[in-house]
Nucleic acid binder design. Sequence first.
DNA 1: AGTGTATCCTGCAGGC
DNA 2: TGCCTGCAGGATACAC
Length: 320
Amino acid sequence: MPELPEAETIVRGLAPGLRGTVLHVDGILHPDVVEGEPDAFRRGVDGCSVASVGRRGKNIVLDLAPSSFGARPPTSSSPAASPGARPRSAAAHAPILRLVVNLGMSGRLLLREEGDPSPPPSHPAVRFRVVRDDGSPPALLVYHDIRRFGRLELMDPERWADFHARMGPEPLGPRFTRAALAAGLEASRMPLRSWLLDQGKVAGVGNIYASEAAWRARIHPARRTADIPAERVAPLHTSIRSVLREAVEARGTTLRDYRTAQGWEGSFGARLAVYGRAGDPCPRCRAPIRRIVFSNRSAFLCPRCQPEEGELASFETSAT
DNA sequence: AGTGTATCCTGCAGGC
DNA sequence: TGCCTGCAGGATACAC
């Protein structure tokens, strides 16, 4: 479900309330969402402070460091804490663990402050206590996931380096240049939609924004990337970035399950041009939007704006 | 190299 | 109302 804009929105919602706090695993209600041994996960997380909250592709990343005020007893690798020491001083040279959260199709990360009147999450999978050193009451960080396709993994620096290296450039970052995109497209025979969904090619695009970007760039989603004309690469580059940026500004797209860290819905759904709109008129040319299926997943396009250009392949289509 | 298929799981919408 | 089928924003392993 959640793609880059949704993950980015969650990160922005979590960061102010999580940075500098100490985490304790309060309960692992569904061990299947935790990568590896649940006990090891719990021991690794307990007592760590959150140095920063970030994102890589669709993944939410909490940088963890041994805390100077948490319950974790001092060890040979974490110098004894003096009372009142700031957490970040201990973090400076400590090996950083990373808690990487992939939300799958229906995952949510909800930060619930003490006294929050909203009803408790219906499908909690992992709960964390969020402890602050300013005397304020602890909050609750809940990983909620109806379908449990999401994963929480605690990564050491070596595992993180491998994970990071296997992922393509951030589409909103400086490495994702027009030239890099052109080279990547030319080197592959994949259909454009499959290429965009491949996290090793570019990190963070999912099925919604792949359809939207292809529509903006007027390229058929099944077009082989190596066959995309050179003059369409710049529009595609612009389209990928603009649709992701606009979706971030709108706090993401809520179709069903996605919520921000505060439990709110994203508003970009109202601005989708083609995704989920089979039969509706194309916002550009009024031709009916078409749904096609390939690689076992839906794609949406305007048959007039995004012609197949001689591709022999035919696709199962429907008007609804 | 790239595709189709199956798998993990639950909930919901639509057809009958 | 109830049952059945298909579908869903992701990622991976497998055979071909």
